[in-house]
Simulated scan of single mutants.
Amino acid sequence: MRALPLLGLAFVLVWCTGYLAGKIVVAQAAAATALVWRFGGAAALFALLAWLGGARWGTWTDARRSASVGVLMLALQFGGVYLGLQLGATAGVAALVIGAMPLLVSLIAVLSGMERLRALQWVGLLLGFVGVLLVVADRVDGATPWPAWLALLTGLVGISAGTLYQKRQAPNVDLRAGLALQNAAATLVLLPFALLLEDFRFAPTSAFFGATAWLILVNSLGGFALLFVLIRRDAATSVAALFFLVPPVTAVLGHLVLGEHLTALKLTGFACAACGVWLATRRLA
């Protein structure tokens, strides 16, 4: 990747912490309600940073594009994943579906003429997906109901379309202003579901507010800022390939932080995913 490798590594580590914090949040609140808290808080924080820094908000067209990215990458992706979990999908099935994102992004990018991939890059993408499959294999079962699959596929389409849209139609606004608009749009889309279907249900515990604060300050502020910087600087396929590392790194963090079991199969999957990302993102002569 043209961006510093450390930037991509930082993104993966920060992004993975969101899954650990998310497990705590969804145990304390309904899905859409939890996301409204997260995205609403992030929108307010980014708006404050934009105002303090005198950020340029751009034109109405820029605002519309930022809002579109927010609906796709935030509301659809996380709404689909959280709803899928509520409808009976296991964490392994969710990780496997979202783990297909790099393949879908690459396929669309090639078919639309946005990018051209070499054979070794396709090998890397397939190897990366095999790595994801190995990591989540022990958590995938055949009992996932079709509504849960539909919700997860909606999340997959959301993050894939959002990545490509952000790359092709990136609004010409300050990053702080853009993220404020994106989070605000996601909040407005999810708010009716939280109010009408969930009665804005959450437990006002220290665990809920602590995990939500982490999602806002670390995952949204750090993770999405890093993601959009990477999208601006690199090919969509290269950035998407980093998501192959999310399930393996999350498994390792889950072992270190939550005491979750780490098997030899998961470590093998980690190695496959890492090799796949290296092949998919390296610059070939």
Rank of each mutant, 00 (worst) to 15 (best):
W57M: 07
Q182I: 15
P204W: 03
P248A: 02
L134Y: 04
Q86C: 13
V97Y: 11
G142T: 06
A21P: 08
A10S: 10
K23E: 10
L156A: 04
G58N: 05
P147T: 10
V252L: 14
L221K: 02
V25P: 06
S112E: 07
G80S: 08
R65W: 12
I108R: 00
L221S: 04
L230D: 00
T187G: 08
F243A: 03
V277W: 08
L195G: 05
L265I: 09
N183C: 15
I216R: 06
T33P: 08
G155D: 06
A285P: 15
A194F: 10
A44M: 15
S112Q: 03
S106E: 03
L267I: 13
R56C: 15
A225N: 06
L117P: 07
T59P: 09
S206L: 15
W278G: 00
L175I: 14
A100Q: 09
F270K: 00
F193D: 02
V12D: 01
G18I: 11
W146N: 05
S66G: 10
A225K: 10
A44T: 09
L197T: 08
W122I: 13
P145K: 04
K266H: 05
E260N: 08
G178I: 13
L127R: 02
D234M: 12
V140Y: 09
A241C: 10
A34K: 03
V252K: 00
V93Y: 11
L120D: 03
C272M: 10
H261W: 13
I24V: 15
L227I: 04
C272H: 05
G259A: 08
R233A: 12
A271R: 01
A148W: 11
G210R: 00
F11D: 01
G79P: 15
